[in-house]
């Protein structure tokens, strides 16, 4: 990639939009996953009894079980949301950038 092309792409408004949107989206999604996971793991480290609370009065099932399963499902849903937006909106922007370069 020569300097001229680099400058041209950098100046392309679609490119700027793509980079800023995707970067902020990827960071937000990563933070969401990290916050959920570290809250979980630090709850266990500092207060293990919390997740051992029964879901209802005489039940043996603890709230830790639905919470744990929910984290697994949450991780999967996050990848789904990201993939959908990136493969749709971001790739559309990306194609516009590629088209713009081809045209001249």
């Amino acid at each position: 990639m020569n300097n001229e092309l680099v400058e041209k792409i950098k100046a392309n408004s679609d490119y700027q939009e793509l980079v800023s949107k995707r970067t902020s989206f990827a960071i937000k999604m990563s933070i969401a996953m990290l916050v959920v996971y570290f809250t979980f793991i630090l709850t266990i480290a500092f207060s293990p009894a919390t997740l051992g609370t029964p879901i209802s009065g005489d039940s043996v099932t603890t709230i830790g079980i639905p919470i744990g399963i929910a984290i697994i499902v949450f991780a999967f849903i996050l990848t789904g949301i990201y993939t959908k937006r990136a493969n749709g909106e971001f790739d559309a922007l990306n194609n516009k950038i590629k088209q713009a370069i081809k045209e001249d």
Binding site: I41, I44, A75, T79
Partner: peptide
């Protein structure tokens, strides 16, 4: 065992995003 599995899984979304 579940705590362990969750630890192994949560790296994947991060791999995807970054």
């Amino acid at each position: 065992g579940l705590i362990y599995s969750i630890g192994f899984l949560v790296g994947w979304p991060i791999i995807l995003f970054l």
